[in-house]
């Protein structure tokens, strides 16, 4: 847990020092290009790696009533039997984290009227769902908002997102809610891992590292906007240079900006080789992306081995006499088989 924190701090420090000893172009120009290439290539490689293995069996997890008789109502989304149903299920899964929404918590109710004392109950627990949803959506909005640095003129939809985001009209520069919520959500996700014993026990460095990293990105970003205010126009010129493959020198840019950029690059490069691939992964999940219609439509296994089993003729050969005695119908009567 602390090792990964130190690692993130170290990365930030290296970027900082690098920026101040004149290596800004290494961190500001070379690294972003490398990172984007690694990110895209890595992600493509990862998806090809998954896709290379077939889906031998259709194993959707059914979360409701199947489609069977007319008078029994099917749970069309949680137990889809058509592709359209699967699309709806996946939509809810991806955009609203349907499965996490189901989350229950096993807990003790101290004074249960039925038991006259404590009783275990499994009640719905939405905290994890709530914060992970906030986390992912705010991350997305913050990401979209950053497009104003890469585009000229800034598309109206991005300006619109900004207006909504800053609608509370607090402070100057105006406070963006998404940044704040993102920070809170990351802290919540980190806090669970650290303070919930169960989670702490199962968490690995691979779990803390991305959280610390994102925390680093968010904090440095917030610093850039509200505290150590960066010259936005210069950042924009620099980034436009990057996107148009004619980079300008980043020497004069704020060191925190270089730290921010470096951490983002690390995140991009880390992404395809870590658990963060859950983002594209969820689309591949055979328990979610298949319809529960396996009795109606045959699912084909490309490596289906040949059938080998104890056949009826072998069976009859083994038990023929006894079966004949019991009067069971036979393919070959004993006298015939003896010939």
């Amino acid at each position: 847990m602390f090792a990964s924190l130190i690692l993130v701090l170290l990365m930030g420090a290296i970027a900082w020092v690098g920026a101040s000893i004149g290596l800004a172009s290494l961190f500001g120009v070379v690294l972003p290009y490398v990172a984007v290439v690694v990110f895209i290539a890595g992600l493509v490689w990862r998806m090809v790696y998954w896709a290379k293995s077939p889906v031998p069996f259709a194993i959707p997890t059914t979360g409701g009533q199947e489609a069977s008789l007319d008078f029994i109502k099917q749970a069309k989304i949680d137990c889809p039997s058509t592709t359209w149903g699967v699309v709806k299920r996946m939509f809810l899964e991806v955009f609203f984290f349907r499965s996490l929404f189901r989350n229950t918590l096993a807990e003790v109710r101290e004074n249960d009227p039925v038991n006259n004392g404590p009783r275990s109950i499994y009640y719905s627990s939405k905290w994890l769902w709530c914060f992970s949803l906030l986390f992912h959506y705010c991350f997305l909005l913050v990401f979209i908002r950053h497009f104003r640095f890469f585009m000229e003129p800034v598309p109206s939809c991005i300006t619109f997102v900004e207006t909504i985001d800053g609608i509370m009209q607090i402070g100057a520069p105006r406070f963006f809610m998404t940044g704040g919520i993102l920070l809170v959500a990351v802290l919540f996700l980190l806090g669970r891992r650290i303070f919930n014993q169960r989670l702490r026990y199962l968490s690995l460095a691979n779990d803390y590292f991305p959280l610390w990293l994102i925390l680093g990105v968010v904090v440095s970003g917030i610093c850039l906007r509200y505290f150590d205010k960066t010259e936005i126009s210069q950042v924009k010129i620099f980034l436009m240079g990057l996107t148009h493959f004619s980079p300008v020198s980043p020497e004069h840019l704020n060191a925190i900006f270089i730290v921010h950029l470096t951490l983002v690059c690390v995140l991009l490069m880390y992404f395809p080789f870590s658990k963060l691939v859950h983002a594209p992964g969820v689309f591949f999940s055979p328990t979610r992306n298949l319809a529960n219609n396996t009795r109606r439509v045959r699912h084909v296994n490309p490596w289906n081995p040949p059938k080998q089993f104890f056949t009826y003729p072998e069976y009859e050969d083994a038990y023929r006499d006894a079966m004949a005695e019991a009067g069971l119908p036979l393919e070959k009567q004993p006298e015939k088989a003896a010939e």
């Binding site: 096993a106 807990e107 003790v108 404590p118 009783r119 275990s120 919930n196």
Partner: peptide
């Protein structure tokens, strides 16, 4: 968090 599970709960009862 007052994480309970059936084991904890039986004990409290």
């Amino acid at each position: 968090d007052p994480f309970g599970n059936p084991v904890a709960h039986m004990t409290r009862e």
